[in-house]
Design a protein around this nucleic acid. Structure first.
Lengths: 211, 211
DNA sequence: ACCTCTAATTGATCCTAATCAAGATCATCA
DNA sequence: TGATGATCTTGATTAGGATCAATTAGAGGT
């Protein structure tokens, strides 16, 4: 599902944003298309009742803000310090047009941006808290730079809660249950060790609560 | 958000499918792009744990199966008898390329197909059963052919449940509560009357349960 | 090192929707 | 028309997460 369209950004200037900065706002005219080069970005939207929701987390290589709507559908906020490149919509549309006449690969970049939002929707409906937590961990493991099975988790529990549509308390308790099941460990603050990747993936699929 | 790309299908043959027929299957190579001309279609996917979910309902004018992924991301099943036209992916890509060089309007067709799936994801996380039910009704009112405020609801409660991620029992009880609040009425089986559209929209936005 | 503020943790209770179970209504077809 | 199966409805109970409340741990700054 991850599609490489880096060529389209060759020659662009590498830009930076520091943690908590907003790269673009929901509702703004989508003038630029972004590609993240390092760091983590969250896609945030405020629903009508004022609740904050995180639709997706983006990682190095991901495209953000593809112009399938006139305006951005979510705000993009840097979770960590990030580097990225960007391109005007006109430029991107032109490249897309060329791609469509050839292999349509750039069209699949759109699918790649939509995919995590899709999966989130499917997750929220039916699954319990521990399952959601496990699915979240599975989805980010391969996207974070990591040394074996141990890595830093630079995403706050509040952010995880807004992503999984849970309360921070429930996020904390779900992590605890995964620890108690010896599937993961947290030897230090924000430090995560995956003890049993298979068990984690099983927990992410079945509705059954892990005791 | 509803985008008119009908021109792209001019000259195509009008096809039909009867209720419960499947137009295409999840995972199948997305060889065709569809435009619904009449009737209702449901976008169905089976999650890893075997649960059926309905990602979206499609109505007259909607485009289905746009090729942002190599294969279809959901199955398209006719809820009622439907008429539709279709077009090969190659043909559609060619038209998209042209559109990209002009106004990019066809790109927005993709946004329009994704939009309801987007909204569903946002709804599922935070809102209670009655709110989801009200939001569902609001979203279909303007899309069904109706005579004033009264119309037939040709979607089963089981389908609504799979769309809203509720049980059929809860769907039934949510409808009951909207009836008790005099917001809607159901004078006959599958027949719906909207008594108070404003109240319905308020119920769809606030988390507050309507008494 | 200390102070301050924010994030994470834990416990007790409440509330909503799921679940289980049973009946009523509707649709289809012989 | 009557029989049969699916859909809808209603009730009783249960389970899981939200909520409220309080404490602990960590990060940033002076």
């Amino acid at each position: 599902m991850y599609v490489n369209c880096q060529d389209e950004f060759l020659g662009e200037v590498l830009l930076t944003a520091s943690a908590k900065q907003t790269m673009f706002w929901e509702g703004q005219d989508s003038a630029y298309i972004f590609q993240l080069r390092s760091g983590i970005v969250r896609g945030v939207t405020i629903s009508e009742d004022g609740e904050r929701q995180i639709l997706a987390f983006f990682f190095a290589g991901d495209h953000i803000g593809l112009p399938i709507t006139q305006s951005y559908r979510f705000s993009a906020e840097a979770v960590t310090d990030v580097t990225y490149v960007r391109q005007t919509r006109g430029h991107w549309n032109y490249a897309l047009a060329e791609s469509c006449l050839k292999d349509g690969s750039m069209l699949r970049c759109i699918g790649a941006e939509q995919d995590p939002i899709y999966r989130r929707g499917m997750l929220l409906g039916r699954q319990g808290a521990v399952t959601r937590m496990a699915a979240f961990l599975c989805s980010i493991i391969d996207r974070l730079p990591q040394d074996g099975v141990q890595f830093d988790l630079p995403i706050s529990q509040q952010d995880i809660a807004d992503y999984l549509a849970l309360t921070p308390e429930t996020v904390c308790r779900s992590l605890k249950r995964l620890k108690q099941s010896d599937i993961i460990a947290m030897p230090a603050h924000n430090r995560l060790v995956i003890h049993d990747r298979d068990a984690l993936e099983r927990a992410a699929q079945s509705r059954a609560t892990c005791s």
